[in-house]
């Protein structure tokens, strides 16, 4: 099978070369979403193998990269789906749904407690996407795992909410609550780590 490379030249489709062209991009993509090196590598390998076996079906229409990322996306979601299904409720952390986390933010009347949101300078221009993820790394780790995972799939992968509900076996209202808690927890953690002043000139 002959494929044009990025410079438009024709070359034989060769495994080594394929890994060289796509490996790092796929790895970066997976790493941002699963934040575990070994897992990211496994997912990239699964993706390349699946694509390699189906390469005849990819007729060079559209971009090869887009096709590969599409497969990887599916693998990432499948991984979480499996993990959620297999994870017994007892294996979840004591604060799996973030109840305690929310209780630290709001009193029994639902009003802000001692850690009220502070004034922030708009951080959007101070950070590019990569720097933001580096900042976020620490705070995502501090969230209950399922909250962080569901939130990442929704916010980064833009997976359809209904699909996540099905995978988790929860209602839409439940998912919205989880996502909200993840946002609230991240916001507070980022603030504690000086995120609010990043946007100052």
């Amino acid at each position: 099978m002959i494929q044009p490379d990025r410079s438009g030249q024709q070359h034989e489709l060769d495994p080594q070369r394929w890994v060289e062209i796509h490996g790092d991009v796929l790895m970066g993509y997976a790493m941002l979403r699963v934040r575990d090196r070994d897992l990211a590598e496994d997912l990239v390998q699964e993706t390349l193998v699946a694509a390699w076996n189906a390469r005849d079906r990819f007729e060079g229409r559209g971009k090869e990269r887009t096709w590969l990322v599409g497969i990887l996306k599916r693998r990432i979601f499948d991984f979480y789906r499996r993990r959620w299904r297999e994870q017994p409720a007892t294996a979840l952390s004591a604060d799996a749904d973030g109840d305690q986390m929310m209780d630290r933010m709001f009193d029994e009347k639902g009003m802000w407690k001692d850690e009220k949101p502070q004034v922030w300078a708009d951080p959007r221009r101070a950070l590019d996407g990569k720097e933001f993820m580096e900042y976020l790394e620490l705070c995502l780790k501090k969230l209950p795992a399922r909250l962080a995972e569901a939130f990442t799939l929704r916010e980064m992968e833009e997976v359809d909410g209904n699909e996540i509900c099905q995978a988790l076996g929860i209602s839409a209202t439940n998912l919205w609550q989880m996502i909200h808690r993840a946002r609230a927890g991240l916001r507070r953690c980022l603030e504690k780590n000086g995120f609010g002043s990043l946007g100052k000139e």
Binding site: G28, M31, L32, V44
Partner: peptide, 10 residues
């Protein structure tokens, strides 16, 4: 993305 991937020896 490639820059992130390159840091992780694949």
């Amino acid at each position: 993305l490639a820059a992130i991937g390159q840091k992780l020896p694949l």
